[in-house]
Design a protein around this nucleic acid. Structure first.
Lengths: 160, 160
DNA sequence: TGCAATTAAATTGTGTGCAATGTAATGTTC
DNA sequence: GAACATTACATTGCACACAATTTAATTGCA
C-alpha cells in the first residue's frame, strides 16, 4: 500500500484523472460548444456563423488585414480561413484582394455592408452576457484564466 | 456626457464588449482548440481523435450504453455520434448492436481491444497536465467554473 | 543575375458538430 | 386493435478545423 492515502477523489491517481468529469479538457470542449449554441440564434439574425462573427470582430477592430494576420489573431490557419472568407465575400460582407506590394498576400477588407453590420452586432454581447448568468467580474476573471491557459498550451505546443 | 465615468477598459460599454480579447467566448473557443492540438499527438499513438477519445472515456467508465446515453454524457447528438461510432467500430474498438428489448436502441460496447486501450490511455492525462503548466487545484477550480458555466448556458438554451 | 529556399494562400482529404429530415420501432388513444 | 404520436437512430447537407500538399511570389545568397 502507498504511503499516501488513496481516495476516490484523489486527483493524482491515474484512474481518477481519466474520469470524464475530472477533465478540464472536456469541461472546456463541452462549454465551448454550449457557448456556440447560445450564439447561433443571435448570429443567425446577422447572417453569420460563430467563426464568421469572430472574423468580423477582428475586422471591426482593424480593417485591411492579410489572411495570415487574421489567422494569428484567431489562431486559425488558411485551410480554415480561406473558404470561410470566400463565403463572407459571397455574402457581400468583405472584399479579398491580392496585395500590390506582395502578390502572395491577400488583403481582407470590410465592405460598406460589413462595416454597417457592426451596429447590429453591438447587441450580441449583452444577450450572451445575460445567458451566462454571470457577473462582469466573474466573466473577466474566467476570460483571463483561459487566456493564460491558452498561452501555456501554446508554449507547450512549440516544445513538441 | 454620462454620469458614469467612461474608460477604454469599461466592460459595460457595448463597443468594449465587442472587442475580441474582452470576450469570454473567444477565450473559450481558442483555448479549447489549443487543448485539442495538445491532445492530438498523444492520441495519435492510440489511434484516436479527440472526440473519439471522449467516447472511450465514457465507455471505460460505463460500458454498454445506448447512443443517446453517450450523447447525453458528451452533449453530442446522433448526427455527430453515429459516424464517429462507426469509425471506432471499423477500427475494432467497439461493437454496435441493436437492443433486444427495444430495437430502436443501439447498444455500444467495448471490444477487448477497446478495453485494453485504457492502459495506454492512463498516461495521457499526466502528459496534458504537464502541458498546462498548472497545479492540480488550479485545474480543479477552472474545471468546476467551466462546468457551472456550461450548466448556466444549458439552462439559457432551454429558455430559447 | 540565377536559382534554391522561404513564404502566403489555396487546395485536398478526413473528421467532426449540428440542423433538418427520414425510417423503423414502440407507445398511446379511442 | 388500428390510427396516430413519439422515440431512437441514421442520413444528408453545410460549415468548420487542420494536416498535408500545391502553386505562386518573394527573398537570399553564391
Amino acid at each position: 500500500m502507498n504511503s499516501r492515502a488513496a481516495s476516490p477523489a484523489d486527483q493524482l491517481d491515474p484512474a481518477a484523472l481519466l474520469k470524464l468529469d475530472n477533465q478540464l479538457c472536456f469541461a472546456l470542449y463541452s462549454t465551448s460548444l454550449a457557448m456556440t449554441k447560445v450564439y447561433k440564434p443571435l448570429l443567425a439574425r446577422l447572417g453569420l456563423t460563430y467563426p464568421q462573427y469572430l472574423v468580423m470582430l477582428v475586422l471591426w477592430e482593424q480593417d485591411g488585414l492579410t489572411v495570415s494576420a487574421l489567422g494569428e489573431r484567431l489562431f486559425l490557419d488558411s485551410g480554415t480561413l480561406t473558404p470561410l472568407l470566400k463565403r463572407l465575400e459571397a455574402q457581400g460582407m468583405l472584399l479579398r484582394a491580392r496585395s500590390a506590394e506582395d502578390e502572395r498576400q491577400v488583403i481582407v477588407s470590410l465592405s460598406e455592408t460589413g462595416r454597417a453590420l457592426r451596429e447590429e452586432a453591438l447587441a450580441v454581447p449583452q444577450a450572451v452576457l445575460c445567458a451566462t448568468a454571470c457577473t462582469i467580474p466573474e466573466l473577466q476573471t474566467m476570460t483571463a484564466e483561459l487566456q493564460l491557459l491558452r498561452r501555456k498550451l501554446g508554449e507547450a505546443l512549440l516544445k513538441t
